[in-house]
Design a protein around this nucleic acid. Sequence first.
DNA 1: CCTGAAACCTGTCTGC
DNA 2: TGCAGACAGGTTTCAG
Length: 283
Amino acid sequence: MPELPEVETIRWILINGSEATPSILGQVVAGASLFWPKTLATTNLQDLRENLAGRPVQGLTRRGKFLLIDFKERHLVIHLRMSGDLRMAENLGAPRESDPILLHDRFYLHFRSGFGLAFNDTRKFGRVWFVADPRDLLMKLGPDPFDTELTEDLFYTMLQNKNRQIKSLLLDQTFLAGIGNIYSDEALFGSKIHPTRSSRSLTHSEAALLLEKIKASLQLGIDHNGASIDWVYRGGDFQNYFQVYQRKGQPCQVCGTPIVRTTVSQRGTHYCPNCQPKKKKDT
DNA sequence: CCTGAAACCTGTCTGC
DNA sequence: TGCAGACAGGTTTCAG
């Protein structure tokens, strides 16, 4: 489900709280509950409970699609994968061993305030790591698209150093961190680049435009609180602004040509065959 | 180094 | 209605 804008939206909500729930910042841990063992990728529940009890949440940050809850010397690192979601919920001050509040709740972090952080994940792909130093988990990640050190020149060089289908490369988190299937399709459409073109075939100006459109697509997603698709709804409405994603057969908003859906890197891929030609057109 | 397939999971939608 | 198959915002591992 979540790509960088959706993860950022969740982070914002947890930090700012809502009418019914407080901010996660400063919440003191009282315990934890686990309903699907694989969700906790490290250690065991008992170890986590003993080491986190009494510790306050010092911060909540994001790196790529990972969320990091900072407890000073300890960290919870969370990846939502395809269907994960995080929410603050009331009446979660103490462990629940029997059954969770909601269907598909996999993990709770209980706080002394009586509230708790609930990790809901239908497809069970999401993971929570309990670590002393999160750097080991994150060190393979590529740069954040908004990183000011990621210049046009550097991005062009990175593309030249690979010989991969451009869409496949954008989805590779060791190349860039945070882009997923929606935003890769949208950014490639915005820069008029066919998804299977080799990264090495891009010109310097195409690379510069692609980087610009990647950032623009992600920012638009953030501005709209992310995209809400299917039965998963978080309040975002970026799905109403898709130009190609999930628009198979519908007219391109630039030229009217029907949007095509294919498969690239085992992922559904949407593009306009006229605006994003594989070969350069004669003009 | 690069590509494609399979695996991990549950749920929804489509077509026969 | 029933049921098989495709498909879903992600990542890892393995074969070729």
